[in-house]
């Protein structure tokens, strides 16, 4: 490899390393510690991620998107983080409310849930949901009352879908934030939702955000997938072998 002779060469090489890498390289040091600016940028990114986890989706958003709001068995954020089992279930009262207030036995039940990033909901849902709803309408699918779930985990769609006797269910949920982005959203879909449906029976599109799969494109893509699920009456690994995802 080439040796750097001049300071200019050196700075250019260092800059190239810093620029092309997603990792925080070429950051330098103050003694053995990071430089102040580097340290604060790191803490700032973490702060944004923490806020995405800890904050709540606003009532304004829920209202403006015409979502019917419910809550899981979880009582607060602390409870949400410690008890994933409670985030997958709704109370008998909530189930009864769904049966009186929402459309029964729809072909497609759309659910929005805060998950681990309320920021992801705030940033993506206003663009994504109208496109998705139009897309489902255009494909002649019968769509249920859209629901917002506070303190929801992915599998709460099994409980809601079962209570409403939906043919298939879709949940748009905030992903665990990274330091690179706290705005990433996932869409999980299941055909024939029932409590206890294994992950392998679910179809997922992840990394939905402005810097990943843009929300508008995601809305159209999800509508396509839902139509395919309804036509083939399947989801997850049963839908297509190409969708296989292997966990670490």
């Amino acid at each position: 490899m080439a040796t750097n002779n001049s300071p200019d060469d050196h700075d250019a090489v260092l800059q190239r390393i810093a620029d092309r890498n997603p990792s925080r390289l070429g950051v330098g040091r103050a003694g053995s510690r990071p430089k102040t600016r580097t340290l604060l940028e790191f803490r700032s990114d973490h702060g944004v991620a923490r806020d995405a986890v800890q904050s709540h989706v606003s009532d304004e958003l829920v209202e403006s998107m015409g979502l019917f709001p419910i809550q899981t068995l979880v009582e607060d954020k602390d409870d949400y983080l410690a008890r994933p089992d409670k985030g997958r279930e709704i109370s008998d009262e909530t189930a009864a409310l769904l049966r009186t207030e929402c459309k029964q036995a729809p072909q497609v039940q759309v659910i929005v849930a805060d998950g681990l990033s309320s920021t992801a909901i705030e940033r993506n849902i206003p663009d994504l949901l109208p496109i998705l709803t139009d897309g489902l309408d255009q494909r002649g699918l019968d769509v249920g009352t859209p629901i917002f779930v506070r303190y929801g985990r992915v599998d709460v769609m099994d409980a809601i879908g079962e209570e409403l006797d939906a043919e298939c269910c879709l949940i748009l949920i905030g992903e665990r934030p990274g330091l690179a982005t706290a705005e990433s959203l996932s869409a999980y879909m299941v055909y024939g939702p029932k409590r206890g449906t294994p992950t392998a029976k679910k179809t997922v599109i992840s990394n939905i955000h402005a810097g990943g799969l843009p929300p508008v494109e995601a809305g159209a893509e999800i509508a396509d997938l839902i139509a395919e699920m309804c036509a083939k009456q399947a989801s997850g690994l049963d839908l297509t072998a190409d969708d296989r995802e292997f966990a670490k």
Binding site: S23, R24, V27, T38, F42, D45, R176, L179, A180
Partner: peptide
């Protein structure tokens, strides 16, 4: 990891 940030496993 660089500056405590693992950009692959998404943890610190």
């Amino acid at each position: 990891v660089p500056m405590g940030d693992d950009v692959m496993l998404n943890y610190q």
